[in-house]
């Protein structure tokens, strides 16, 4: 149990989430990728708190912030999926490319 091992596991979760977010066509699966990325960030933050600065509680507060971000992302994401599906039956990322630059 070292900091490096924890961070490697977190990096693995982040990379898998990134793969999912980039490769999935379904918007819901894309959001699962984003969740996995945040999952890795939680793990990395907890490891940083425990192995580097366990004296303060800033690391713990940061985890609370990340968990909140996760909940907000999920709720807002599903609301957007519902809205776009209701207005034009789009449930795939390829159908929602209006903001393509």
């Amino acid at each position: 149990m070292t900091l490096q091992l924890f961070l490697l596991a977190a990096a693995g979760l982040f990379a898998i989430g990134l793969y999912g977010a980039l490769s999935q066509q379904s918007i819901v699966m894309l959001m699962m990728g984003l969740e996995l990325m945040l999952n890795g960030v939680i793990l990395a933050t907890a490891a940083f708190w425990y192995f580097l600065t366990p004296g303060g509680s800033d690391g713990q507060v940061l985890i609370v912030v990340i968990i909140t971000a996760m909940a907000v992302e999920m709720a807002a994401g599903f609301a957007v999926v519902t809205a776009i599906y209701r207005s034009r039956q789009v449930d795939m990322t390829d159908g929602a490319s209006d903001l393509r630059g």
Binding site: F14, A15, Y19, L22, S23
Partner: peptide, 19 residues
């Protein structure tokens, strides 16, 4: 249900390698 599978895999593996 994929698009650009090879590119995504390359980016993900590259990110993991850098991290």
């Amino acid at each position: 249900m994929y698009h650009n599978k090879a590119g995504s895999m390359t980016i993900a593996v590259g990110t993991f390698a850098v991290l």
